[in-house]
């Protein structure tokens, strides 16, 4: 029972974690992409379609990532090159993704999907209890963990991470130093798109291996909120995503058991719990302000 709950927690948290860590990188570069939901749903439908047509889960994953990146490339072109309003463009991207995915996915409604194989790791997966829970996951879960560790390390320790933070903190200074602000931001936007696409692919290839219209059900928006509440720190995104996943799963079980609590209240619990915990851990205003990208959402036009 407990193992099963833990497994579902991981499954519920992974798409949020992936989308949020991607958006974290985007926002750290100073760009606000509100199109996460749209990129996720495009990843979901493309991943499902590719896997279904080719019969290959790996190609499905790649397709999901590619779809997210393609949509984010469009966003990057609009906001970075044509300097459109980031908020409006992001919202439009979500609407575009939702509509386009419905169109593409029409042929796949009710088609049985392809569920990603669990990737057993030698020795580790055979450990008692820990083995099946932690090391008996599908490849995307491992990828999500690897991506978070890589992003956290890169932000804190590498030159690329330093450049990213610098561009998000003060794009005018970064430009004066000769850093290519737009290039850095475009790459960050692509990375965010890839992560959101992967998160969507996880929904349709592992979470519920089928295509249902609007199946991401607002997870992109939750991921966006997680980034802000986690004050742009990767490890806090992990806490937020897993907490949200855990409380979601627990409320399902509470409903099944039939606790005498209105279901509306129960379904609002994940949001409340996540907000409360993340507000508590980000009570250090100084740390929060230092990590807040000062140029978030501000357009940059190099003077040449």
């Amino acid at each position: 029972m407990f193992e099963a709950i833990l497994l579902t927690v991981i499954t519920a948290a992974t798409p949020l974690l992936l989308a949020a860590i991607g958006e974290l990188v985007v926002e750290r570069s100073g760009v606000l992409n509100l199109g996460v939901e749209g990129m996720m749903i495009m990843g979901a439908v493309t991943g499902f379609a590719v896997a279904n047509l080719t019969g290959s889960g790996t190609l499905g994953i790649l397709g999901a990532i590619g779809a997210g990146m393609a949509l984010s490339a469009l966003f990057g072109f609009l906001v970075l090159v044509l300097v459109t309003n980031q908020v409006a463009t992001g919202l439009a991207l979500t609407l575009l993704g939702l509509g386009l995915s419905g169109l593409i996915g029409e042929a796949f409604i009710g088609v049985p999907g392809l569920k990603l194989e669990k990737l057993d790791l030698p020795f580790l997966s055979d450990l008692p209890f820990v083995g099946p829970v932690i090391f008996g996951q599908d490849p995307i879960v491992y990828m999500s963990v690897a991506i978070v560790i890589a992003v956290a390390y890169a932000l804190a320790r590498t030159r690329a991470g330093l450049v990213l933070r610098a561009v998000g903190d003060n794009h005018a200074s970064a430009h004066a130093l000769g850093l290519s602000v737009l290039k850095v931001r475009f790459l960050a936007v692509l990375f965010g798109g890839g992560c959101a696409g992967l998160a969507g692919g996880y929904m349709s290839l592992a979470y519920t291996p089928q295509w249902v219209e609007n199946m991401t059900a607002g997870r992109g928006w939750i991921a966006l909120a997680l980034v802000v509440f986690a004050s742009w720190l990767p490890w806090r995104v992990v806490i937020g995503a897993y907490l949200f996943g855990a409380v979601t799963v627990l409320t399902f079980h509470a409903q099944a058991v039939g606790a005498g609590v209105p279901s509306q209240l129960l379904s609002s619990l994940p949001y409340l719990a996540t907000i409360v915990v993340l507000v508590l851990i980000s009570s250090n205003r100084r740390l929060t302000l230092v990590n807040t990208p000062a140029c978030l959402g501000k357009p940059f036009v190099p003077d040449r």
């Binding site: 030159r159 330093l162 450049v163 933070r165 610098a166 903190d169 003060n170 005018a172 200074s173 970064a174 004066a176 130093l177 850093l179 230092v290 990590n291 807040t292 000062a294």
Partner: peptide
């Protein structure tokens, strides 16, 4: 108008250049 990054440390600022 200094081309410094307020959220970064002194050595990080210098490393960027």
């Amino acid at each position: 108008h200094f081309s410094l990054f307020e959220a970064l440390s002194v050595s990080e600022n210098i490393a960027l250049a």
